[in-house]
Design a protein around this nucleic acid. Structure first.
Lengths: 182, 182
DNA sequence: ACCTGAACACCGTTCAAGT
DNA sequence: ACCTGAACACCGTTCAAGT
């Protein structure tokens, strides 16, 4: 990558991080380019889709979550390891307001720039879920897809301003459903 | 209302019902006016906000849900009455794709045209929940707001195409959390 | 009273023209 | 190679002008 191109790329990413934190995942891309002092076409070549931009912004977080799952997989209590990871996954996913709907769409769209991240998120959760199920700590009638769906539902809830005060409590209710054996 | 005004109103409502069913709650209002053969300003005067239009479209459904709660309140099994109503509430709310986020926003916004409908939905659910709690069929650590949030989460899940096949199963998981006693 | 549609200020996306 | 910004086709919302 040419030096000027790299500079634009970095600048776009930094500005996008701020704008998305401010306005959510559906922020104006025009606004991002404007604030970055870059032509609109430049943004589109570096990030051909909104998903590509979000993927670049969120990759670090996804990687951290996968690594966190590895650590937690070695803990004694498989049930609370699962719930702990779940809580962190919801928090991470929630941190970019509005991104969760795109992520859900991406899991069944191999062409999406977010696809790989979603698959690895689901895989990390599946590992912890299966272990908890094997040890009898989690209900046996669900799989990684269900877990991914419940994470997305909780992240969505935490994204709705009127529900924010109840988000923790709703997490308790739903996670209790996972831990209860069938 | 003048006869021509009433005709426009009815025509707008009929077209909006079709367009919203097709494109979801964020459908183009311009498109609605166009297809209704009516000026854009006419749509805006009859329905000053998107919420007002949706409210007109959904009022019947909300009324039916409230009435259904009355019926179910007289059934023997307070727990399954609650779950049955919950299932119907999710289905009703889901039927207008994308409306659920607006409804959640409306519950804490008295100025919204959807506010009253949301409050009555919550009230209907609360009646069934409290009865089930009194009889020991539902967990005691939640209230009508939590129930409303869970309905909205389930409706949101059912709105995401990749999750549709799992929607029923996710309903079972979450409703089991409500019925389990604490 | 009621209706219309132009006007304004925004989008996302593409692509010819520049350096 | 890379960048720019005009161009196109859309929005939501308002409001002067018409009947």
């Amino acid at each position: 990558m040419r030096a000027d191109a790299k500079k634009n790329y970095d600048q776009l990413l930094a500005v996008a991080r701020a704008v998305v934190a401010e306005q959510g995942a559906d922020a104006s891309l025009r606004d991002v380019a404007r604030r970055a002092g870059v032509g609109l076409g430049t943004l589109y070549r570096h990030f051909p889709t909104r998903e590509a931009l979000l993927e670049a912004l969120l990759r670090t977080n996804f990687d951290a979550l996968a690594q966190r799952a590895d650590e937690l997989e070695r803990s004694d209590d498989s049930g609370s390891a699962l719930v702990t990871w779940l809580r962190e996954a919801v928090a991470t996913t929630h941190n970019c307001s509005g991104a969760i709907a795109l992520m859900v769409a991406a899991i069944s769209d191999e062409g999406s720039a977010l696809h790989a991240s979603c698959v690895s998120l689901r895989a990390a959760g599946t590992r912890l879920l299966v272990r908890a199920q094997t040890k009898g700590a989690a209900r046996s009638d669900m799989d990684g897809n269900d877990l991914f769906a419940l994470i997305s539902a909780l992240a969505w809830l935490a994204d709705q301003p009127p529900l924010v005060p109840r988000a923790d409590h709703l997490f308790e209710i739903i996670s209790s459903a996972i831990l209860v054996k069938v």
